[in-house]
Simulated assay, not measured.
Amino acid sequence: MQLLQTPEAFEGRAVAVVIFYPGDGARSLFATRDAADANDLASALLIDNTQVEGDYPVKDELREAGFYRVHGTFKRSQPVVVGEGVVVPFVVGGRLSDLNGIEQLRTLTQMREHCAERPHCRMEYMGGILPIPRIGTAEKSPDALEWLREP
């Protein structure tokens, strides 16, 4: 979100963003799934045309709709002047070029569904931060989380 709110601060810089790919061969990556559903182009980053066919073929990495971590160089969109004093707002939030990494991410919902399909699987947060599925009996008793209860 910060990238889209202050694009001038990131112009020409290498960035790593978690972004939603809507699928179906789209060249646009959206800040959120809701932005993709609404086709909110102001919240979208376009993939540079050369990336689709070039040295790092994006089409091989973006196979299905979902969240991805993308590494590349950010270029902000320039305003389009259509007449004296008339400037069209940004059509898209910016562009990503020189991509050098795309990694598909598993959402928490996908992790829960995967765990629910397996017997004796439960979700835990390692260190209270990282959600991970575990199979087997609990390592800690429910009393270990007593500090969460109100006095």
Rank of each mutant, 00 (worst) to 15 (best):
G93V: 05
N49E: 15
I102L: 03
V88A: 09
S43E: 09
Y21C: 04
G25F: 00
M126P: 10
Y56E: 07
L41N: 14
L105V: 05
S97Q: 09
A31K: 10
A65F: 03
H120N: 13
A42S: 09
G54A: 12
T109D: 15
R122C: 04
L29P: 03
E84R: 11
N39E: 15
D55N: 15
Q78P: 01
A35H: 02
A38L: 14
V58S: 06
E64N: 02
E11Q: 15
G23L: 01
A44Q: 04
V81K: 07
R122P: 04
R122M: 11
G94H: 07
L62M: 00
Q78E: 11
I102E: 07
G66D: 04
T107H: 07
K140L: 11
K59R: 09
Y56T: 07
F74G: 04
A65I: 01
A44L: 06
V87P: 03
E113W: 09
N100V: 01
D60G: 00
G83M: 01
S141F: 02
G93Q: 02
A26E: 15
S141T: 12
G66N: 02
T73L: 04
S28E: 14
I135A: 15
G85L: 11
R63D: 00
Q104L: 06
R106D: 14
D37F: 14
R27Q: 12
A14T: 09
T73K: 11
R69H: 01
M111I: 08
I132E: 13
G66V: 06
I47F: 06
L96H: 04
F67Q: 07
K75V: 14
E103F: 06
D143E: 15
I132L: 14
L130A: 12
V52D: 08
E113C: 10
F90A: 12
S141I: 02
I102Q: 07
E64K: 02
L62V: 01
A36L: 06
G128P: 05
E139Q: 14
S28P: 01
N100M: 05
H114D: 13
E8P: 05
T109P: 10
A9P: 05
Q110C: 10
D98Q: 12
V92H: 13
N39K: 15
A138T: 04
F10K: 10
V70R: 01
E64G: 01
N49C: 13
V58K: 02
P133W: 08
P7D: 12
G66P: 06
A9F: 12
R106C: 14
E84F: 08
P7L: 09
A116V: 07
A35Q: 07
A26W: 11
H120V: 04
D48A: 13
Y68L: 00
P57A: 08
T109W: 12
T6M: 12
M111V: 14
R76H: 10
P142F: 01
D37M: 15
R134M: 12
A36P: 10
